[in-house]
């Protein structure tokens, strides 16, 4: 197990180096002068020169990359030229909202996805099966930016059941100290139940929007893998012993069918981080996705580099964890990859 872990970590590090090169060159290929972008309509040559020099843009590319790498090895992502903030700090501030949103979306998708998958598998061929499967297919086909706006319009505006955007009522927020910037955690730490409820309330619509696609995928996966298990010998035996359907499914089949579902969940995290960009944009959610989108629009080099690298590292770590979990559940994987 340790050897496997070390091997995986090494290969991850190598991939990250690859990503760093990719990101660096991609960012520098982006057309549009970052200095001009900062200065806007009123830019003049003197100010441009001065700013380019401050930003180190007048140096040769190789020098810039070497500097980037050496800073990186000290875990220093530099300062943004636009906001003057430390990139690492800004990531630290914008990641928790995204994590909170992603986890909530995942929770929503897992709970309802497995539930729907089970219902569908049990009623195989029946009306509910058909309805769930069609719903699941519709779920992966819907443009999430469209879904988000429809939800706002219906639930926040027409019915006035949910807040429209943001993470917490602006006034309640003043009573809360942002220690972790995980709103749910901060409100609890502050012992402010009203604020906690308000934070949950703000989280629902964006989480549903973001969770819809994974919900659909998890539903399908649960159904198919449950069906596969249900066809196997020991299930038939269990039935033969006269056990009820719920016991068979709940106690024997579901546990065994969850392995592929876990893989899917891991993969979906990557999707969620991407989908979060669109969701955050619509709900004014101050997460890392909208932060990064703003940096890309502004050609703010250091946040783009730092942000993309961070997301890549995160994504790889999630995959690693999933693989480890997988290897833990199913020892065959371990042996296979050790052999490669």
């Amino acid at each position: 197990m340790t050897a496997y872990l070390i091997q995986r970590l090494l290969s991850m590090l190598l991939s990250l180096l690859g990503v760093s090169i990719l990101v660096f060159w991609m960012v520098h290929l982006i057309p549009g002068d970052p200095a001009l972008m900062i200065l806007g309509e009123r830019a003049n040559e003197a100010a441009l020169q001065e700013l380019r020099q401050q930003m180190g843009l007048d140096q040769p590319k190789a020098v810039q990359y070497a500097r980037f790498l050496s800073d990186l090895s000290r875990l220093d992502l530099g300062r943004s030229f636009r906001t003057k903030g430390l990139v690492a700090e800004e990531i630290g501030r914008h990641f928790p909202p995204t994590a909170e949103l992603t986890l909530a979306a995942m929770l929503f998708a897992i709970v309802f996805g497995i539930l729907a998958g089970v219902i569908s598998a049990i009623n195989r061929g029946g009306f509910w099966d058909f309805a769930t499967m069609f719903g699941a297919l519709a779920g992966v086909s819907i443009p999430i930016f469209w879904l988000g706006l429809m939800l706002i319009l219906l639930f926040a505006h027409q019915l006035d059941l949910f807040p429209v955007s943001g993470r917490l009522d602006a006034l309640l927020d003043l009573e809360i100290e942002r220690r972790t910037n995980f709103m749910l955690l901060d409100t609890l730490l502050a012992g402010n139940l009203a604020a906690f409820a308000d934070a949950v309330w703000h989280l629902i619509l964006p989480a549903v929007t973001l969770g819809t696609v994974p919900l659909a995928i998890i539903t399908r996966m649960t159904r198919s893998s449950l069906l596969e298990v249900l066809n196997q010998q020991y299930i038939t035996t269990a039935y033969a012993k006269g056990l009820s359907q719920w016991i068979v499914v709940g106690k024997h089949a579901l546990k065994n069918s969850l392995i592929p579902v876990i893989t899917v969940i891991g993969l979906e995290f990557g999707y969620l981080l991407g989908g979060a960009i669109l969701t955050e944009h619509i709900f004014s959610w101050p997460g890392i996705g909208s932060w990064l989108l703003k940096a890309v629009e502004a050609r703010d080099i250091r946040p783009i580099q730092g942000g993309v690298l961070f997301i890549a590292a995160l994504f790889m770590s999630v995959n690693l964890i999933v693989d480890l979990l997988y290897a833990y559940i199913d020892p065959r994987i371990r042996i296979q990859s050790a052999a490669v």
Binding site: G18, V19, I30, G270, G274, G289, I311
Partner: peptide, 20 residues
């Protein structure tokens, strides 16, 4: 190489490519 491409969420990668 494929792993490196896969290490980035697809929407993000597409955004960066189009921006370039």
């Amino acid at each position: 190489g494929m792993d490196i491409l896969l290490a980035l969420p697809s929407v993000l990668l597409a955004i960066v490519i189009v921006t370039i």
